[in-house]
Design a protein around this nucleic acid. Structure first.
Lengths: 153, 153
DNA sequence: CTGTTTCATTTCAGCACTAAGATTACGACC
DNA sequence: GGTCGTAATCTTAGTGCTGAAATGAAACAG
C-alpha cells in the first residue's frame, strides 16, 4: 500500500517514535498532574472522578460501557462504583433486558455534586492546556486521535 | 501581550481543552499499553524499565536525577532501585562530593541485558507510533513538547 | 564553631488498581 | 430443552506506587 517514506531512514523513524513517546508521556503526566490535583481537592481518585464525569455527561451506563470508557480493569469498575455507592453519589440499577448486566447512574446527590464542581474542573483542564493556541489544540487533537486509534488497532 | 483569540469563544476554548485532554489520555494509554506489554515480556514493571533505560542511555545518575527523569515519587526510586539491585542489574555508588547523594549505575549484567532487549523494545515503540507519518510525528512532537512544558510551569 | 535551614535519600503505612478465576446469565444450535 | 460457548459482573489476593515523616548530611548565617 503506502510506500515507506523515502526520505526517512529506519533509524530516523525509530528515533522519531521514541521521541514522540517521551514527549507524549511527559505531556500527559504534566497535564494529568494538574487535573488530578483539582480532583483531589474534592477527595476523589482519578478513577472515581472519571466515572462521575462519564455518568454526568452521558447518563446511566452499563458497567461494561463504563469500563471501556474509563479504561480500567474489570475489577476496577466494581471497586470504584462500590466506593461511589457508599458515598451515595451513584447507584446500580438492574438492566431489564439482561439479568447479567447492571447500570451505574448518578443519584440526585451525585448529579447535584457534579453540577457544582464540574465547571471549576473544566477551568482547571483549560489552564492545563493553555500552552497551546486554539489552532494548535485542533492540530494536536487530530494528530493524537489518529495516533490513539492506530495504536488501539 | 497576546490578545485573547478573537474568533474563539470561552466555551469553544474550554471544549477544545477538554477534548484535547481526552484524546491525550487515550493516545497515551493506547501507546503505553503496547510498550508495557513488551516490557512485561521481560518481567519488568514500567518504572523498573524506565530506570534501566535511563541508565543505559545516560550512564550513572544520581537518584534524584533518576526521580526527575522518570517522574515517580521519592519513595518510588528507592523501591525500584532496590528491586533492580536485588536482580543484580543495578548498583548504588557513593557520590564523592556529597555524602547524602548516591548514584545508580547499571552493572555489567544490566548493561548486557539492556543491549540485548532494547532494540526489540524500540521496534515495539515504533509500531505503537506507526499511526503517524514522519511529518506528523514531528508536528506532534513539537506540539506535545510545547503543551508539556507549559503544563509543567 | 553553633544553630537553623535546606537537601538527598530512605522508611513505612496505605491505597488505587490489576489480573485471574469464579459466578451467573444469555443465546444459539442441535 | 439440554449443552456449549460466550458475555457481564464480582471476588480475592497481590502489586506498584504514593505521600508523609524520618534520617543524616550539607550550606549558610551569625
Amino acid at each position: 500500500m503506502k510506500q515507506a517514506h523515502p526520505l526517512v531512514t529506519r533509524d530516523e523513524e525509530q528515533e522519531l517514535a521514541l521521541k514522540l513517546f517521551v514527549v507524549l508521556s511527559r505531556a500527559h503526566s504534566a497535564v494529568a498532574r494538574i487535573t488530578e490535583a483539582d480532583i483531589a481537592r474534592h477527595g476523589f481518585s482519578p478513577g472515581e472522578f472519571a466515572i462521575l464525569e462519564a455518568l454526568y455527561h452521558r447518563g446511566p451506563l452499563l458497567l461494561g460501557e463504563v469500563q471501556r470508557k474509563i479504561l480500567v480493569a474489570s475489577g476496577g469498575v466494581t471497586y470504584l462504583v462500590d466506593r461511589l455507592v457508599a458515598q451515595g453519589l451513584v447507584e446500580r440499577q438492574d438492566c431489564p433486558n439482561d439479568r447479567r448486566a447492571r447500570f451505574a447512574a448518578l443519584t440526585p446527590r451525585g448529579e447535584a455534586l457534579l453540577a457544582s464542581i464540574f465547571p471549576a474542573h473544566a477551568e482547571a483542564v483549560e489552564r492545563a492546556a493553555a500552552g497551546l493556541s486554539p489552532e494548535e489544540k485542533r492540530k494536536a487533537i487530530a494528530l493524537l486521535r489518529k495516533l490513539g486509534l492506530a495504536a488501539a488497532e
